[in-house]
Amino acid sequence: MTSNATAEDAVDAAHRTVRDSGLAVRREVLGDEYVDAALSRSAGTDGEGLQEYVSEFVWGGVWTREGLERRDRSLVTISLLIALGQHTELATHIRTGLRNGLTRKEISETVVHATAYVGCPAGIAAMRVVQEVLAAELGPLTVETESDA
């Protein structure tokens, strides 16, 4: 084996290690059902490489870093998805935020805060998504749930 092949093997092993770590975090945060569905949908398709990239670089490279807790990463991600108008991913990350310990109130306040910076149309559209997800996950907002959330 040449030193070039040895170096390539080491790089491949490093990629696998980070991707495996990312996949583990992805499963912890999003849940096995969600991750399995995403991987199954793309298996054997043009999207398979993107799923590997997301597991390695987003979940393995970013979500495993020190410096921010997962709940804080969820707040940042929710804010960015609001700004980008990415409502499908926003719905996913509202659920992720709940799994990471965010409260209904914190998520709603994140939308209000983001609206001040990205504008009312973006904030209103995001709040529709947030309300739908929170109602599905936590039930409708009531006086009792508002004081608990």
Rank of each mutant, 00 (worst) to 15 (best):
A37Q: 14
D32H: 08
H113P: 06
V29Q: 01
V130G: 03
G119Y: 08
H93Q: 08
C120G: 12
L134Y: 03
A24C: 08
D36L: 07
Y117E: 07
T88I: 12
A91H: 03
R16Y: 06
H93D: 06
I94M: 03
R41Y: 09
G49V: 08
R70W: 10
T2H: 09
D12E: 13
D148A: 15
G139R: 07
A91W: 02
A149W: 13
K105Q: 14
T142R: 06
G119S: 09
I78K: 00
L141H: 06
D36K: 04
V11F: 13
T103D: 02
E52S: 13
L80I: 11
I124N: 11
L39K: 08
S108E: 15
T115Q: 07
E28H: 05
G31L: 03
V11W: 10
M127L: 14
A38W: 09
A135F: 12
V143F: 14
R71C: 03
V25K: 05
A43G: 11
V58M: 11
H87A: 05
L80P: 00
A24Y: 04
G119V: 08
D148P: 07
R26C: 05
S55T: 11
V62P: 10
V25W: 02
Y34S: 11
W59D: 05
A83P: 04
T145G: 12
D46W: 14
N4G: 12
L23W: 06
S74D: 09
D9K: 13
G97T: 05
E33F: 07
A24D: 13
A114I: 05
H15M: 07
S3V: 03
R16L: 11
L30W: 09
V29N: 02
E48V: 06
I94C: 04
H87C: 04
F57G: 01
L102D: 02
T96K: 13
A37K: 15
